[in-house]
Amino acid sequence: MIDFGFGISPSSGINLNNSDKDTFSKLAKMEPNVLKCMACGSCTATCTAGDFKTTSLRTAILNLQNGLKDEALEILSGCMLCGKCTMVCPRGINTRHLILSINKIYGK
C-alpha cells in the first residue's frame, strides 16, 4: 500500500444507526431496572474502586446504550462488587446485580 504520510483515524463519534441495540434489549429483559437509570452519577461518586481506577456504572450504562461494549466493560473492570453503589442509587436499581448481568451478557 502506498504511504501517503497520513492515516485515517476511526470516528470518535457515536453512530446510533449501527449500534448494537439487540444485546442491550437482552440486558433490559434480564435487568429491566437498567432502563431506569437517570445518569445522576451517585454510583460513580461512591465507588470504592473509583479512587484507584476510573470506574463508573453510569458511564457503563451509557456506553452500552451507545453500543460501546468494550468501553463499558473496561470502565467496570475495576469493580470489586462491593455493592456500595446499590445503597446510593436513587432509582433503587440493584446496581451490583446489574454489573454481574452486564458481565454475563457482554463479557467474554
Binding site: S12, G13, I14, N15, L16, N17, A39, R58, T59, L62, N63, N66
Partner: peptide, 12 residues
C-alpha cells in the same frame, strides 16, 4: 452531542 459521554452522536 451526547454531553454525558462528551461525544458527538448521530442518528437517522
Amino acid at each position: 452531542e451526547d454531553t454525558l459521554s462528551s461525544k458527538p452522536v448521530r442518528v437517522n
